[in-house]
Amino acid sequence: MHDDLFRAMRDSIVDGDPEVAARLSRDSIALGVPPLEAINRGFVAGLTHVGEQFAAGEFFLPDLVLAGEAMKAAVAILEPEMKKSGAQREVLGTVVLGTVQGDIHEIGKTLVGTMLTASGFAVHDLGVNVPFETFAAKARELGADIVGVSALLTTTMTGQKDVAEALERHGLRPRVKLILGGAPVTHDWAREIGADGYGEDALAALSLARTLLGK
């Protein structure tokens, strides 16, 4: 049943086409397809393929970003339907994300947010130039599982340590996991400041988040 529809949904993600993804979502509702099934058998299959191709070096960041955009467009239409029917997509975890104080670079951080959201995490993006304390305060407020801190500049990377200290002060460690991202960041740096890990790119961040939460 609906195999053609699911295939088209998958392709809309692979083609990175939010308009087609949204149209197919509306079609599926009209056809009475359970929204959770549309997401898992249709759109997620596309996302998985894009992830695999990216890892293989065949797909590139624009493919990944537009796949994420298409996924968002589909979920935006299907989610209200799910709520109506009482079905729920499994939330893998709650993540608070942001670029550290003094730094306004958002590409990497936003890409991580897109991949996490698309894969079923609840993501709260604090944006850029986020004060150290805000990470901790928001994590406490939301009962977050993970805090992700991005820094692109060599000069602002040290702020990740301040976030680590703020989480400590709020008594959130080690329950809340701390993950880092950004061009100058390394595994050594993550170890040095007592973070739980560092992701080289958005896919690495996704697999790191899954591993840390055992999902």
């Binding site: 070096g57 590139f60 960041l61 624009p62 590409i107 990497g108 890409l111 061009a183 080289e200 790119d201």
Partner: peptide, 9 residues
């Protein structure tokens, strides 16, 4: 430019 594989500059 922006490296479309790694996201580095």
């Amino acid at each position: 430019i922006f490296d479309m594989r790694t996201g580095i500059t």
